[in-house]
Structures are given as structure tokens and as C-alpha cells.
Design a protein around this nucleic acid. Structure first.
Length: 643
DNA sequence: AAGAACGTGTTTTAGACAGCATGTC
DNA sequence: CTAAAACACGTTCTT
């Protein structure tokens, strides 16, 4: 099947042909056969890099009206926004938390790229462009099974269909065990394939030898001169595998490890192997220009030797520089935590997964098969490699287990997480606030359209809806009328629009009331920052044992400033963490440099950046709620302007 | 006596979406 | 109830 035979305009066909895209990949042809180019609903469960973007474009270009492309990450949204913008005669808009086309223009675009939360928010705020959509493409639908964000995605998809009945839905999934469940739910045709444009061989390394699943083998010379305890062996094997790929296979590598610290340690170890490229120094200079943090300096030093590390402790600019440099082949290796497994497109010749287990708060657990497969799937650069190689590092005792668990295994099934209480509370409130439902029965009706209801008999939802609505009434977010009818209160409506969890809204409200009663001189920047830090929508900040005593002292000295004092705190340890978060943010608003804060509180520059971002959002919500309740807390505005 | 080597108890551990209104190179 | 590796720090062993 050829591009020129598809129902596309001449200029679009020329565009594809100029990119060298003439004949469709097999999964793309299957999608066409399933009707993507004719308004048909399709679920495509195919590997990354097997041409999903083309399927998405095809659906949106042939649809009879505007298209919406939903994806899970902002960085991904940016990447797609740029790709779609290159299509001739197509106007593209973007809507994510950090980067937004003007809201009134969204309706005028042919394609809008957005994160799922942003789409959910648009629906909650009654955006009219949603109803006019002819086509919705959902990337990474398997995230339906993710705790926290999965429920948002399924409720959003259910609501979208309510607002735009009969829209064409095209869902793109990684290879999972039950794609037919998703296809069934969406009333779509399933296209399933494991075809890849570049072959992939996966294997396990143990004792100097990689045994690949295509029967081939690779001997690796491991320099085990250094003290051989378990960890060093894995690291040295990883070093040898990376070096071999770069020097002998002419390729770049990704190495996945368990923690940030180990990503950095491995990068520093690899920096001694002479992997620098001609452009390494330029990239290093770009990185140094971002900031003067020690993390930035260490990254630049590694990059000078052709090696980078990549994890969420890095600022987004640092991450973007590393990703781009790697794509341009200015870097030989990236040592990464799972950030890179599902993020933007960074294909490599060889992927080495050194650690397959991770601490989960209570014990070491094997990574999900899907996650390991996504890491491995990054191997194989189109037009550059004859095949990609993915290697799991193990030893003789674990070889068989790793083979069975990952190499030969199917990924997990996608299971709805909507039953989660917090998720239901949030979405039931939004369903009522948006006007999709006004009673127990109609709430159930809306929920019946979700993936959860599709997978599980609905009967047991009824009781939960009772509990959840009762809780929302108790919180003052809903009022109950006669015969189980519900209306959102002004507070409930505002909480839903501000996109904070009901629990967050309730905590902000009680904090604001308390602050309004406190002596004015006690209401400081720290007060409002701790107030928003002590909500479930703020991520907690790790409080190390070493700094606990000093933090306790600080909390005592400022106790009068907190809306919830140390004696009233329900969980003291968590409360003390919120004090740490607030203290960090307070110093930030007082003009302390990122370098100093990052040094003093032992957090990554990226951690500070993301907390500041969340604080902007949560203080915005606090401001809106204060106005609604007619509570005067001027510190909010002052702190907001200094973030 | 300096420094390497060893032993033991302690510390730490992945990721990342969202409001709203303006202004910028 | 469930782990493992790095680190900090003190002690012993070598030269």
C-alpha cells in the first residue's frame, strides 16, 4: 500500500514523499484496512517507532473536522506539535500546563495537541471546541492502567464521547496483554502487530556472554580488575557492553539503572572510557550556560567525555539539551532512570538494562514487564542500525529467570484503576459540576461508559457512589436535594475548575479560614506556602535523618505561623516534610539562589523547579478560593508574584 | 606513622499531570 | 511482614 493511494491532498502526499515515506509499514496498512482513513475507530497495539505517528496523522487529516491528539507528557506534546506543524496547510494548536495556545484560538486549529489532564480540564471548563471534534487520537492508551492518571484518561474519554457523540477515536497502545479489552470498550477495530522497522534482539548478559533470543551470542570482555563484589560486576559488565556498542558496533547506548545517584555514578564511570565526540565540548558549554548548580556542572563534565545522565532531578532544559544532543549523535551514552523509557524519542543502537529491580517503599520488586519492554524498545535507530540490541545484565544464577520474566514474557494486561477512592471523588465531583449528571442514577450512567465499568460488573459501583457523594456533601462541595439529586456548590464548582483534588480544596479552605483568624503579623509567606504544601496535590519532599533535628527546630521557631501547628498535625513526620517543602519555597521567594537551595536541602534542581511550578498552580487555586469565600489573605498574592 | 583495607551501622531509594492571564524574542 | 547498595566512620593491617 502506498501513500499516494491514500485519500490525502497532493501537498500532503508530496510532504510524505519528500520525507522518504512512500510505502506504508505493515501495521499502518492494517490500520488503513481497519478504516482509520475513513472515520473508523481503531485501536493499534504496536511497538514504539513502528509508525504510530503516521497513523495518527492519517486519521486526523482524513477526518471531517478538527482533530485532537492526546498524550501523557508535555515533552511529548511539544514533540508532536512540531511534527504536525510541518504538515502542509495544517494549523496546529497546543494545550499543556506549561505551554498553551491562546484559548479562544483553539477552536480554529485543524489539530490540537494536549495532555489528558488538559483535555479533562477543558471539558470541566466547558470549552466549546470539544464538541466540534471529528477525530480524537489517544497516544499511550495503555496508561489507562496507571494509578492516578489512568482514571483521568478513561473519564476524559468517556466524557469526550458524551460531548462529541460519534467522534472517530483512534487509540495507540504499547504491546499489552489485553488490547482487545480496550478496543471493545471503544467499539473499535483492533490492529495488533509486533512488526518493527528495525529488528530487535533481546538477551541476557551473564559471565561474559550475552545470549540473544534470536539464537546469536555476543562475547564481552569485562575488565574485572577492580574489587569484584556483586554491584561492581554488574557495573563493569555494563561498561563493557556500552563500550563494545560504541566502538565495535558504531552505535550509541542507553543504560538504565535503578536510582538517580547510580545514573550519575555510572555516567562518571563511563566518562573515563574515552567516548567523547567532536561536539561534546559544545554541548557541555550549553549545559553550563543553564545554571551554576553542582548537578549541572557534573553533567557538563560527563558530557565533555561523551556521556550524560538523565533523571527527574535535572531541570527540564538540561534534559532537553541531553535528549537533543543524543539524537544528533553528539553523545555516545545516556545513563538514565526510567524517565527515558517512555519519554521523547531517543533511539539507540544498544540498550543495557543494568537493574531490573527497584525499591517500592517496602521491598525490592521486579520492574513491570511493560516498562522493561519499553526500555528495550528504544534499541534500533532507523536508517542507522541493521538491528537494535537490548541486553539485561544478570549473572548465571539469574539468567534463566530474566529470560523467562522479560525476554520471553508478554507484558501485563491493562486494568482500570478507577475504583480508587480519591480518583472517584475527584471525577464524581467534576461530573456533577460539569452538568453531566445530577443524581445518583445519572452519575452511575456516566460511569457506566468508563473502561472500569466495561471491565467490571457495574453493580458494585452503586455503593461506592453513595459513599463518595456523601463525602462530597460533607466537604461542602455538593448539596443533596430530594430523591438523591445533587448540585455542585460554588465551592465544589470552583475546586473542579481549578483542577485540584477535592481533598486539596477542603484543606485549602480550612487553612484560609484559619489564616483569616490568625493575628495578621503571624500570616507570612511561610504560612501560605505550608498551607499548599500540606495538600495531596503537592509532592512530598524527602526529609533525611541528618536534617530532621534542624528542621524540627525551625518548625518550633515558626510554629505560630502555621495554619496547622505541630501539635495539631495528624501525621507528624509528614507534616514536618511539608514544613521542609514550605521552607524551601519560602527561601526561593525570598530570592535565595537555586544553587544554594539545592545544596542546602539536598534536592535536585529539577525537584525545585517542579515544586515551584506546582506552587504556582496551587496558590492560584488558593487565591480563587479565597476570593470565592471572601477571605482576605494578602500574603497569597505577594508570594505568588515572587515565585 | 601514614595510608590502605576491612568491618559495621546508617542512610537512601523512579516519575510527573493540572489554573489563569499576559507578555516576549 | 518484605531489600540492597552506597556511604560514613571507626578499627585493624601493611609497609
Amino acid at each position: 500500500m502506498y501513500v499516494r493511494d491514500l485519500p490525502l491532498s497532493d501537498s500532503v502526499i508530496d510532504h510524505y514523499e519528500s520525507l522518504g515515506i512512500e510505502e506504508l509499514y505493515p501495521p499502518q496498512a492494517e490500520a488503513v484496512d481497519a478504516g482509520v482513513a475513513n472515520g473508523g475507530r481503531v485501536v493499534a497495539a504496536i511497538p514504539t517507532a513502528s509508525g504510530k505517528t503516521f497513523i495518527a496523522e492519517l486519521a486526523m487529516l482524513t477526518a471531517d473536522g478538527p482533530g485532537l491528539y492526546i498524550c501523557p507528557l508535555r515533552a511529548l506534546a511539544r514533540e508532536k506539535y512540531e511534527t504536525f506543524s510541518a504538515l502542509p496547510g495544517v494549523s496546529v494548536g497546543i494545550s499543556t500546563g506549561d505551554y498553551d495556545s491562546p484559548a479562544d484560538e483553539l477552536a480554529d486549529h485543524d489539530i490540537v495537541v494536549a495532555t489528558s489532564e488538559k483535555v479533562d480540564s477543558a471539558i470541566r471548563n466547558g470549552a466549546n471546541w470539544v464538541a466540534d471534534l471529528a477525530c480524537v487520537v489517544v497516544d499511550e492508551v495503555h496508561l489507562l492502567g496507571a494509578e492516578g492518571r489512568g482514571p483521568t484518561l478513561e473519564v476524559t474519554l468517556a466524557n469526550l464521547q458524551r460531548r462529541a457523540p460519534g467522534v472517530q477515536i483512534v487509540a495507540l497502545s504499547a504491546t499489552v496483554d489485553n488490547p482487545e479489552d480496550i478496543a471493545d470498550w471503544l467499539d473499535a477495530t483492533l490492529v495488533e502487530s509486533t512488526w518493527r522497522p528495525v529488528d530487535l534482539r533481546t538477551g541476557v548478559y551473564a559471565d561474559g556472554l550475552v545470549e540473544f533470543n534470536d539464537g546469536t551470542e555476543l562475547t564481552v570482555d569485562v575488565d574485572d580488575g577492580s574489587t569484584p563484589n556483586g554491584a561492581d560486576e554488574d557495573t563493569e559488565a555494563t561498561v563493557a557492553l556500552v563500550e563494545d556498542a560504541v566502538h565495535n558496533a558504531g552505535g550509541q547506548c542507553l543504560a538504565f539503572v535503578r536510582s538517580r545517584r547510580e545514573a550519575e555514578a555510572l555516567a562518571e564511570r563511563l566518562a573515563r572510557e574515552g567516548l567523547a565526540t567532536g561536539a561534546s565540548a559544545t554541548v557541555a558549554d550549553d549545559l553550563t550556560a543553564v545554571d551554576g548548580t553542582s548537578t549541572g556542572h557534573r553533567l557538563a563534565d560527563c558530557v565533555r567525555d561523551g556521556v550524560a545522565f538523565h533523571h527527574a532531578g535535572l531541570r527540564s532544559t538540561h534534559r532537553a539539551v541531553v535528549e537533543t544532543a543524543f539524537r544528533n549523535r553528539y553523545l555516545a551514552v545516556i545513563c538514565a532512570t526510567p524517565t527515558l523509557a517512555a519519554g521523547v524519542n531517543v533511539p539507540a543502537r544498544r540498550v543495557v538494562v543494568r537493574d531490573q529491580q527497584r525499591y517500592t517503599g517496602s521491598s525490592m520488586e521486579f520492574l513491570p514487564v511493560l516498562e522493561v519492554h519499553q526500555m528495550c524498545g528504544r534499541a534500533g535507530r532507523p536508517h542507522l542500525d541493521p538491528y537494535g540490541e537490548a541486553v539485561l545484565v544478570g549473572d548465571e544464577s539469574s539468567r534463566a529467570e530474566l529470560d523467562e520474566r522479560y525476554v520471553d514474557a508478554d507484558p501485563e494486561a491493562v486494568e482500570s484503576k478507577l475504583r480508587d477512592r480519591t480518583a472517584l471523588t475527584t471525577h464524581v465531583l467534576s461530573i456533577v459540576a460539569t452538568g453531566f449528571a445530577d443524581s445518583h442514577a445519572t452519575i452511575l450512567e456516566v460511569l457506566e461508559a468508563t473502561f472500569y465499568a466495561h471491565q467490571t460488573p457495574v453493580a458494585d459501583l452503586s455503593g461506592i457512589v453513595d459513599d463518595v457523594t456523601a463525602e462530597l456533601v460533607e466537604m461542602g462541595m455538593l448539596t443533596e436535594g430530594t430523591s438523591e439529586t445533587f448540585t455542585a456548590t460554588d465551592l465544589g464548582a470552583q475546586v473542579s475548575r481549578q483542577y485540584v483534588a477535592p481533598e486539596t480544596g477542603a484543606r485549602i479552605v480550612s487553612g484560609l479560614r484559619r489564616a483569616a483568624e490568625m493575628p495578621a503579623e503571624n500570616v507570612t509567606g511561610l504560612t501560605v506556602l505550608q498551607l499548599v504544601a500540606d495538600t495531596p496535590d503537592m509532592q512530598d519532599t524527602y526529609l533525611g535523618n541528618r536534617e530532621r533535628a534542624a528542621m524540627y527546630q525551625y518548625a518550633r521557631n515558626h510554629d505560630a505561623e502555621f495554619t496547622v501547628g505541630m501539635n495539631d498535625a495528624e501525621e507528624f513526620e509528614r507534616w514536618l516534610e511539608t514544613v521542609k517543602t514550605a521552607r524551601i519555597l519560602y527561601e526561593w521567594t525570598e530570592g535565595e539562589t537555586m544553587e544554594t537551595i539545592v545544596e542546602n536541602y539536598r534536592i535536585g534542581p529539577g525537584d525545585l523547579e517542579s515544586r515551584v511550578e506546582r506552587t504556582e498552580w496551587l496558590l492560584g487555586a488558593a487565591d480563587a478560593l479565597a476570593t470565592l469565600l471572601d477571605l482576605d489573605v494578602p500574603e497569597i498574592a505577594r508570594v505568588r508574584s515572587r515565585l
